[in-house]
Amino acid sequence: MSEETKSIALVASKGTLDQAYPPLILASTGAAMDMEAAIFFTFYGLDIIHKDKYKNLKVAPLANPAAPMPVPNIVGVLPGMTYAATWMMNDWMSKANVATIPKLIEQCQMAGVRMIGCQMTMDVMGVKRSDLIDGIELGGAAMFLDFAADSDINMFI
């Protein structure tokens, strides 16, 4: 990596819709700013690159005072509340013309963002390589830290 080139290393550890946006936005923008960018997907963050899940990430209506529907927690446990909160968030996003998660993933990949699936948490959660979208590297803590050690920006999301 040249002296001039900046680098950004992100850990994506959460699988809710709202928490999927920051790593994808920052990595794609970093790449557009001529930075090297990598995202390490671990634990629930793996859902962001899971073939069957990434198009339908959800918002948690429970223990989330800032949820799209500010309802008491006792209401949040009712069936359908996760669906309702997710629907509202997607509606906000679409009205504000914000890119969808699949679109941002595509933009990350086009921009050359390295996307790394955490092998250990895949094993823990029974996620196979074939469950993930194409273009994902697999690795562990050492692989991520090797990249992060030379990075100018490191964030855990």
């Binding site: 923008t29 790449a31 700013m33 013309n97 914000v98 890119a99």
Partner: peptide
């Protein structure tokens, strides 16, 4: 009409 970060990505 596009929101962050799309104008930057399209510009790049």
């Amino acid at each position: 009409g596009l929101a962050c970060p799309e104008p930057i990505l399209h510009t790049k």
